[in-house]
Design a protein around this nucleic acid. Structure first.
Length: 736
RNA sequence: GGGCACUUAGCUCAGUGGUAGAGCGUCUCGCUUACAUCGAGAAGGUCGUGGGUUCGAUCCCCUCAGUGCCCACCA
């Protein structure tokens, strides 16, 4: 009766219906797994993946489809093997990224976010984010993700924020968080500081100027090479390498050619002898190295550091340069300084730092920001954040599926510098620091206590001053998003409605994400996870690459080669998309995908459909077990199935999903369909014992294959299973 | 300036210490009642170069060449 299958598999009629069936069953949650899925030894064991929360600022792209597929394969496989399986979904407000996306949207409409009052802007972006979030959730469903929606978390959930605040406070008490005026990366367009990871380098062709700084007492001069003559008004010293020809001037005083102030000449080995002239002008507020040299020689340098470039990248308090943009000011400064040139400027190619989002040149500025110490030990004892992570990786407490990323990781960790976690944007989690404003004027009787009053207090809630009536005002800066998302594995498991989750599922088993966020996210999760919980956040890290088109090109809207996963899923079915994303793509490499490839797997889905159709038509509904005596050939066929199962299981356990997928494809199509089924046809015609044996064999291989294919192609396999068992059983929770 | 990879069939990529694999593409047949989103068959590679280890290397080691990526406060 159920043999009336159409000759073609129609994903459109299947997928939504099947997903609803799964979701309603409750089996996505580890709490509701059916009692008859007996755990395999050495179970009962939990298996947990925390989904990397997608940025809720746009539609899902093919990279999201890739991670959904890979993670769903692991989850479904483990679930079928009887593990207590949790895949916890989430969404990221993605602070800076989302604010940039939102601003672009406004710019397209002819506006911008500058000038919109803080609270109004926050609400607008919140609406925008929540809309995207709900669209994303339905798209993740469309891709077949068997995640537990009842445990979904959002990075702006109050309980998540509370965990983040706790961590901040712990770090602060441990002396690992400090506020300091230090050179930071400032994006003139976005009006915020950025971490060192959020800048990239671009080669630019500039000029190298050689400027003479007079030393009246010696009737001589020092020659300094610089690409930034416009910052000379902020020069307050000159540093020379003690081995350079300028060493005789160490301790003397030069004159700033633009401001005429005195410049101490100090000795510092950080001045590169092989570059320029061996002498360096010191402009602490506009160059990071200069700042460090200034810090070292503070006592020798009489002048105080000044800023001559403002937040908009314009000169200020710099005499006739005032009001000019950096580039214009540079030209004008060159003109003014011409009499002081030691020689003609030379063309000079170098790397300049730019904002990773907009490509605007980063302006180093000295601002008060919150930093995390990466390499110092906490006051409460134990290792530095860096050492925690490095040691855990070296001791294989976190295993990298692809070795090369372990090397890249360790190399990066070597050169870690303190992490600036404050951002001057609207869209983010406010830093829980409160400033005393105005300054403390003690009430009567508390005058002596003014020394105890602090400039700021770290607190999740508004503090009250013990000594005066002034109000505390919360810091207007927000966290770098990665500070909060870096806590995602424990923050989520600590705040689900099931209070046992953290104990049951932490550390999680595997983190699967793109290698492009190895430093941004993975490294931070390992460090913060170990710091906060004493345990690694995940035992294994699997990193996938960037999806490319059939010519190995990056996908971009301007190239017109973008593959929209939802569109593909509509056209060819989600199963086809999933297979195309997995097959032929080893871990850590950039996956290649094309429409032809997807079509190929659409055909495969149809093959599965038709094989099932054939088996159903020829063999009837039930397989009578027990009395059948199998022919030698059929026994061999079943043995082959068992071998394939062994090998596929091994591949999946070793994260070689591409191998498993290809083996299944090849076996199902070219062994089962082309050979076994073809050979069985005449025997089925004959009837009798031969036919009985063949029937049993075909049905067994079909079911075994469907089970193995299910993690990869969940929809078509489940749909067929529903037909096979008339809706009485669910493949998703069948025993592997 | 440091570091990490890659170089296998026309294209995109797997893979293994023991006579080379897939998908797509190409060619030749076939509308055979599971499937033309199909079937049968075929062509196509000295596995980048030069050495070494080994009974034997595409796979291990070294050299060179080319390609890609990451990191980096040479003003």
């Amino acid at each position: 009766m159920m043999k009336e299958l159409p000759p073609q598999y129609n994903p459109k009629e299947t997928e939504d219906k099947i997903y609803e069936l799964w979701e309603k069953s409750g089996y996505f949650s580890p709490d509701n797994l059916p009692s008859d899925t007996k755990p395999y030894p050495p179970s009962p064991k939990p298996f947990c993946i925390i989904m990397p929360p997608p940025n809720a600022n746009g539609a899902l792209h093919v990279g999201h489809a890739l991670f959904v597929t890979l993670q769903d394969i692991m989850i479904r496989h483990k679930r079928m093997r009887g593990f207590k399986t949790l895949w916890l979904p989430g969404a990221d407000h993605a602070g800076f990224e989302t604010q940039v996306v939102y601003n672009k949207k406004l710019e397209r409409e002819g506006h911008s976010l500058w000038g919109i009052p803080h609270d109004k802007l926050y609400k607008e972006i919140l609406d925008f984010t929540l809309k995207n979030k709900s669209r994303m959730e339905s798209q993740i469903r469309k891709l077949g993700a068997s995640c537990d929606w009842s445990r979904e978390k959002f990075t702006l959930d109050e309980d998540i924020k509370a965990v983040v605040y706790d961590t901040f406070e712990m770090l602060y008490k441990d002396g690992l968080i400090y506020r300091a005026e230090r050179p930071v990366n400032w994006c003139v367009k976005h009006q915020t500081t950025l971490s060192d990871l959020e800048i990239k380098y671009e080669e630019r062709e500039d000029k190298l100027y050689f400027v003479k700084y007079e030393i009246p007492e010696m009737r001589s001069y020092i020659e300094v090479a610089t690409t930034r003559p416009e910052t000379i008004p902020a020069d307050i010293a000159i540093a020379v390498n003690p081995k350079s020809k300028w060493k005789k001037f160490i301790g003397k005083t030069a004159v700033n050619p633009m401001t005429q102030i005195d410049l101490a000449i100090v000795s510092d080995t950080r001045v590169d002898l092989s570059f320029g002239t061996g002498a360096l002008k010191i402009t602490p507020h506009h160059d990071a190295l200069d700042f460090e040299i200034y810090e070292t020689h503070k006592k020798e340098i009489v002048s105080k550091p000044v800023s001559v470039i403002n937040q908009f990248g314009k000169l200020m308090g710099a005499g006739t340069l005032g009001g000019l943009k950096v580039k214009e000011a540079r030209e004008k400064a060159a003109l003014i300084l011409r009499p002081n040139f030691a020689k003609e400027p030379e063309p000079y190619k170098h790397q300049v730092s730019v904002c990773y989002k907009c490509g605007t040149i980063i302006e180093p500025r000295v601002l008060a920001q919150w930093f995390i110490k990466m390499t110092e030990k906490p006051k409460s004892g134990g290792k530095s954040l860096r050492d925690l992570a490095v040691d855990a990786v070296k001791q294989k407490k976190v295993k990298f599926v692809t070795k090369k990323f372990e090397k890249i990781f360790l190399h990066w960790m070597k050169n870690l510098r303190d992490w600036n976690i404050s951002r001057q944007i609207v869209w983010g989690i406010p830093i829980p620091a409160w400033f005393h404003e105005p300054k403390c004027i003690p009430r009567k009787g508390y005058e002596k206590d003014i020394v105890k009053c602090r400039e700021y207090i770290i607190s999740g809630t508004k503090p009250v001053c013990e000594f005066c009536d002034a109000q505390f005002v919360q810091d207007t800066d927000v966290f770098d998003t990665w500070f909060s998302s870096g806590q995602w594995p424990y923050a989520t498991l600590m705040t689900t409605s099931n209070k046992k989750d953290f104990g049951a599922f932490y550390p999680t088993d595997i983190m699967e994400t793109g290698w492009d966020i190895l430093f941004f996210w993975v490294a931070r999760m390992i460090m913060l996870g170990l710091y906060r919980t004493g345990k690694v956040p995940f035992k294994t890290i699997y990193l996938h690459g960037l999806v490319r088109d059939k010519d190995r090109q990056k996908m971009s809207k301007s190239k017109g080669n973008v593959i929209d996963p939802l569109g593909v899923s509509e056209l060819y079915g989600t199963d086809a998309l999933r297979m195309a994303l997995v097959a032929g793509n080893a871990a850590g490499n950039d996956p290649v995908i094309s429409e032809e490839k997807i079509k190929g797997y659409r055909n495969f889905a149809n093959k599965i459909w038709n094989v099932s159709r054939f088996v159903l038509m020829k063999t009837g509904d039930e397989i009578s077990k027990g009395k059948i005596s199998l022919t030698a050939k059929d026994k061999k066929g079943l043995k082959e199935l068992a071998n394939i199962k062994k090998s596929v299981t091994k591949d999946i356990e070793a994260y070689k999903f591409h191998l498993a997928a290809e083996k299944l494809y090849h076996y199902f199509w070219h062994t089962f369909a082309d050979k076994i089924i073809e050979e069985s046809k005449s025997r089925l015609e004959k009837g009798g014992k031969e036919a009985e044996s063949a029937t049993y064999m075909l049905r067994t291989i079909l079911e075994g294959s469907l089970k193995m294919l299910h993690p990869f192609m969940p929809f078509v396999t489940e749909e067929i299973w529903q037909k096979l068992y008339g809706g009485k059983k669910m493949l998703m929770v069948e025993k592997w």
